[in-house]
Design a protein around this nucleic acid. Sequence first.
DNA 1: CTAAGCGCCTGCATGC
DNA 2: TGCATGCAGGCGCTTA
Length: 267
Amino acid sequence: MPELPEVETIRRALVQEVLHRRLRALEVRERVHLLQNCTAPQLEKALVGKRLTALDRRGKFLVLEFGPWAMVLHLRMSGRLLLHPAGHTRLVLDFEGRTLYLDDARRFAALYLVPTAKLWELDPLRRLGLEPFTPSYTLEAFRERLRSRREVKRLLLDQTKLAGLGNIYACEALFEACIHPERPASSLTQQEAKRLFEAIPRVLERALAAGGTSFDKYRTPRGEPGRFQEEFSVYGREGEPCPRCGAPIARIVQGGRSSFYCPECQR
DNA sequence: CTAAGCGCCTGCATGC
DNA sequence: TGCATGCAGGCGCTTA
């Protein structure tokens, strides 16, 4: 499940492999769910023959700019961008010298076509919240986003509050900050908010250094798995000892999603 | 406006 | 072994 570190790892690999290359052809093999705001012929007409001029990321979205047109891609649960085809190809991007395959077993991936000049007006991008690793990510802005009585874990997953965290890194960041996932966000003290504010980029940075998490089927475009699952403190570790205090890790369900935490040291 | 719940989809683990 | 069941997950949509 690609979250910020996985999407950023993909982006960096694509910079090496396909940036500045010309797109020779494009083939859509899944038009029902994938294409959100355009048809396959519209996508082809806009992009084929153009060079990939920039590769950006916003939250979990990849932005591929082809001069005046941009392709915005969200991989959701099972989407992968691969240099070699796997079993569920939904889109083929035939660049000069390299071919990129969008593989997506569960068909949740979403693609938008948008004029580059209006990129940030695109609805899913426009609504995204604070972006870690940017100057806008300040403690003050973070505390503002936490002004809600909702459970802090659920708030961390809300992309309009904070962009890029998914279930894995939300669990791991709360563990780092010693905060219980069910705490109302607005009940966090200044000190707790600061701990969480600092834990989030720290966890993401460590995951990035490990090439992301391949707990699921995630692979880089070159087919390499990430290694961060070996460093999980709590995610998927129900019943195992907490690495900090030894108490058994607990699992609860919040908003239909598993939360893993240490009931002793997360308060 | 906010927040909660559902549906989308399919590989995989589990149970009988 | 084979089949049925249900879980996993992000996010857009609908509803309150």
